[in-house]
Design a binder for these strands. Structure first.
Lengths: 263, 263
DNA sequence: AACGTTACTTTATGGCGTAAGGAGATGCAA
DNA sequence: TTGCATCTCCTTACGCCATAAAGTAACGTT
């Protein structure tokens, strides 16, 4: 029998997602666990060990059970991940002060999402192809739509803009979180890594500067690496590129509004 | 012993990447394989089966060998992936006609990259945190830098812009490729999937429209699903959002140039 | 002819998701 | 009170994965 990625029976999945719990008075031993504590334990594992460290065995162990015990509550690991995802999505704000205007709101929204993904990097591995259809996922979509609605643009354009902002924020978060886990998993800092490889690079490609002149030029005026690696991302020097990129996007939205007003 | 993600000895990795092959006249049986044919076989596997289907066993099998035979040529699977990545990067153009201007060049560049990632979806799973430092990676970086240099903007801004375009293209490619593999792996089309879930959704959340009004509004004026699912992505109706998003980004770049000129 | 080096194989270790089947606890009907 | 259906949770097992370790056989050099 083949079980498809992350989906058991659709009805069961939906009931779990929207909290339709089944009646409690039935024969058999009292449940020692619940879907909720399993979701929380799984989030705890994933936050620390990442998506690759999230195994049914690890979650079970955290709850003093075996991996198989979880299957009493949750049909597959894929469903559990969907539930985890919609749960943490609840951490995101669902309201932004209208007096911020769309520019301020989009900025706050982007920063909130960036921090969210850095807090729960495993969320970046959840496929966006088929939405989880959970309450919090719809709530975040509703919030984003509300902000963008202020621009007065029509839905097809708004979907394009939402795609740009989402892809940008997720991409930036992905780059940063991959950098962090590379450092953690190899035990080698970015700086040490580069120091070990740059001499090899000049050895193996002595004509480097002549061969890739534009790439070299692109490295000009790089900010110094952060003094304190524990600083939150948005206050670190690495955020420069994020701020620059977001500024370009905001200006692009503004130009699009202007075009629509004139044309 | 712990082997770290994707890296053996740095010197060996670099030699493999830049084609420093070791002398051929040595005792022992003649090599039946080579790093190059292994890379090609691995790309063949990954293009068809995706990154999750890429196993040393599968690559070995394609070459009539066992998985372990590959370790004579390549130190770890991680190194093999790096080599695969730099190899396919060679498919991308390294030159764009200057008469296209930066707008036309960025557009072509984005479309080329989108098609590239859809042709080799596994490239989206290669970590961008620590570059592969191969010749083709540098070449593509050089090409992109050259295009952006035409805007006359300074490197820190250009890095921000490059991030926006890269994240956008990769995000769009990721969404599309995840949709394709969801369809392939589950055997259920997007349409059928939605048809099976939307009735459950209204059942489980009858107040949906009142609860998420903006999200509902965002669905207005959606293009019809593609008549012919075999059409290339860029000619399909799904490309609407990509074109919209790219337009917003281009306008943002233009506004940034204007600001720099004036201020 | 002997020896060291090399290509490739077999086997084994410790991980994964989860199917299958069984033990023991519990609520209810007779 | 007994018997049974139903439940939670366990052990075991299967077929995957990367790769360590050790063995076999082919080959170039001495």
């Amino acid at each position: 029998m083949v079980v498809y990625a992350g989906q058991g029976d659709p009805r069961r999945s939906m009931d779990l997602m929207w909290g339709n719990r089944v009646s409690n008075l039935r024969p058999g031993p009292k449940p020692g666990l619940s879907v909720d504590v399993i979701i929380d334990a799984a989030i705890g594992v994933a936050d620390v060990e990442g998506m690759t460290g999230l195994s049914m065995r690890a979650v079970g162990e955290r709850l003093g059970r075996t991996a198989m015990a979880l299957y009493t509550y949750v049909p597959t690991k894929g469903d559990l991940v969907d539930l985890m995802y919609d749960r943490v999505l609840g951490e995101l704000p669902t309201h932004y002060e209208p007096r911020l205007g769309w520019r301020g709101s989009v900025t706050s929204w982007a920063e909130d999402h960036l921090e969210f993904h850095l807090r729960h990097p495993w969320t970046l591995q959840v496929s966006q192809a088929r939405p989880v259809l959970g309450p919090n996922e719809f709530a975040t979509l509703d919030t984003a739509s509300g902000i963008l609605h202020e621009t007065g643009l029509r839905p097809p354009v708004l979907r394009g803009i939402l795609g740009v902002v989402l892809h940008f924020v997720r991409g930036a978060a992905r780059t940063e979180s991959e950098a962090r886990s590379a450092e953690e998993e190899t035990g080698v800092s970015d700086e040490d890594w580069w120091h070990s490889r740059s001499p090899l690079l000049v050895e193996v490609a002595p004509d480097f500067a002549a061969r890739f002149p534009m790439a070299v030029r692109m490295e000009q005026d790089k900010p110094a690496p952060p003094e304190d690696p524990e600083k939150p991302y948005l206050e670190s020097a690495m955020a420069e590129s994020f701020a620059m990129g977001l500024g370009v996007i905001l200006d692009g939205i503004e130009a699009t509004i202007e075009k629509a007003r004139v044309g």
